[in-house]
Nucleic acid binder design. Structure first.
Lengths: 334, 334
DNA sequence: AAGACTATTGTTAACGTGTGCATGAATGTG
DNA sequence: CACATTCATGCACACGTTAACAATAGTCTT
């Protein structure tokens, strides 16, 4: 079948041990011999059998990249940026195995033999179970995007509460006082954080928000659309809406234009995430940029550090978010 | 360290062979013995070492999912749907390894030992090299999204030429005669197919298209924006634009509104792909739906069939696209 | 009741690679 | 020149699993 080190050994007139050492650049082997063996390996188009390597070295060369879910609730852009970020770091050294946590019926198959390290892009508290499983197995782990307090876990995320605070403060500075909130998907930590930022800004500036100005959403276009319809039906409409993500903001804008009104002339809208299309809708959406690609890059980098130095760095890193001002907010005259 | 079948064997008072057979549900073993062994395995929280299995069974349990590129030119939605489709099919049986073809400096590491099968979501003719490598290694392969003639390759894609024809015919049926084209990224097969559909429709209905009505784009928002600006600067503007994907269509719509005009009142726009946001922009975008998730599902399914039955199905499957009529096209009065 | 057959389990080797220890040659030391 | 030391390589085994073949006991056939 395929070429093994024994085939090379035979041709080179040495033992397979010598070949193994030569190809791993061991200092025990003479430079001259190494060169000869490398040449033969090249000519035979030799590729190491990673299953055999894994078995004896107790490493899998696999990196797990797990999302809370692949089938529902994860936005395409988010998903894409996360994979890109991680992928740009690992290059050739590892294989990237992508999976949705909700696809696992049992975590049994997640062992130190099958993953050298795992990155969880977490969007829900429900991920706690798998996190604990991974930690208990002693697999190096980094959790992105959601705060986690479990011991022994690297944790990298953006400060979403701060981002939401930023966005809402901006609305208030534009003299808005009737500000409504379209919340994120229930159970997602990000939904809570963003709402917290909203509430803090309101409190900080002493703005009263009636209960009907808060409607839960599902992070998708449709729920934003529906929520906005409800706001529009109100007797005293809000003059501005903070939507917990861009997709819902888009749905909201759609509802506004369907009602014969205009953004930002009649109602201002702010989103969150700075999705690729935010800059290109009409009007361009003012939103909060969350450095997902940077988070996943940073996470992958540190995870590799932990794996290769066998250390156990375990801090929490908060990366700052940034307000991107575009055209969807109007400054009210005071 | 971790539990092996030998540990179980010792506790059960049998040989490790018997344990192996029992856990693989071999008919050679007494039902009673099997039950006893399964129980012990469960209690010890045994997990098979997949490296060892792979080594002896000559299977990796890995499925490769390769994209032409992860870093440039692949749209997030496209990427997301493809992964979802494949993932929904493979469930627990395989690990899904995601990679960008342009990340490979050498294909050497792609062997039959490291991948049981490979799915290529191909967007460029440049992928031919890796396709040939994979075929030469005898790895089961399915190529999605782009037509491929290499022997021994399963090929599943949508009939994009037909989709473009559909879209352009629709424009013509709405009495448009000055129809412009924003082309896709050069070198991408889809760009060629969609253009072909455009040309066929024009020819079929006997519509003349001046050369300046065709501008190449890059499949991103910005290039659509720029292309539209050029159309708008023309003395005799088109009344309708067929954009080779939704993102460029969005960019085009942006340019139109910046010029103080409206879609579809002043200019009609049709896109391609039916991206998630197409339904929620204002006006909602008329576009061509390409069943990516279905394509990748179908592809994964057939690939698994080929792997597990050791057969070599090698046909080309064309899945029909569908025109989604929304609000971005105006019927001209004749 | 002897031989053939069947059902169940064990023995042993194999997959491809890495590593501790042994070996032998060459070199250095006193 | 005898002995210690260093350098380069080989031998044998280990990693955890599966499978071909052997072995044993029990059952059936005539």
């Amino acid at each position: 079948m395929s070429v093994t080190i024994k085939d090379i050994a035979k041709l080179a007139g040495v033992s397979h041990t010598t070949v193994s050492r030569a190809l791993n650049n061991s200092p025990l082997i003479q430079e001259e011999t190494k060169e000869r063996i490398r040449l033969i390996a090249e000519q035979l188009d030799y590729t190491p059998n990673y299953s055999a390597k894994s078995l004896v070295l107790d490493r899998s060369y696999n990196l797990g990249l797990f999302f809370t879910t692949l089938s529902k609730g994860t936005s395409a852009g988010f998903f894409y940026e996360a994979i890109r970020g991680v992928n740009s770091v690992i290059q050739d050294r590892y294989q990237l195995i992508v999976k949705g946590i909700d696809d696992y019926s049992s975590f049994q198959s997640i062992t130190r033999k099958s993953f050298d390290g795992i990155i969880i892009v977490s969007q829900s508290d429900d991920d706690q179970a798998i996190i604990e499983h991974i930690v208990s197995k002693g697999i190096p782990l980094v959790v992105l995007n959601r705060p986690v307090t479990t011991a022994g876990v690297l944790n990298i995320l953006s400060d979403e509460e701060q981002g939401a605070f930023l966005a809402c403060s901006y609305l208030i500075e534009q003299s808005h006082t009737r500000i409504a909130l379209i919340e994120g998907r229930k159970g997602f930590k990000s939904a809570q954080n963003r709402k917290d930022g909203f509430e803090r800004a309101m409190k900080h500036y002493g703005i009263k928000v009636p209960p009907i100005y808060r409607i839960p959403g599902l992070y998708d276009l449709e729920s934003g659309h529906k929520a906005m319809q409800q706001f529009l039906a109100l007797e005293e409409r809000p003059t501005a809406v903070f939507s917990c993500n861009d997709e819902m903001a888009l749905g909201a804008m759609k509802a506004i234009s369907e009602a014969g009104m205009q953004v930002p002339k009649d109602i201002s809208v702010v989103g969150f995430d700075d999705t690729v299309f935010a800059a290109y809708v009409t009007p361009a959406l003012t939103t909060v940029r969350r450095p997902i690609e940077q988070i996943s890059k940073e996470g992958a980098l540190r995870l590799l550090g932990n794996i290769e130095n066998k250390q156990h760095e375990t801090e929490q890193v908060l990366l700052k978010t940034e307000l991107v001002v575009r055209e969807s907010v109007k400054k009210l005259s005071t």
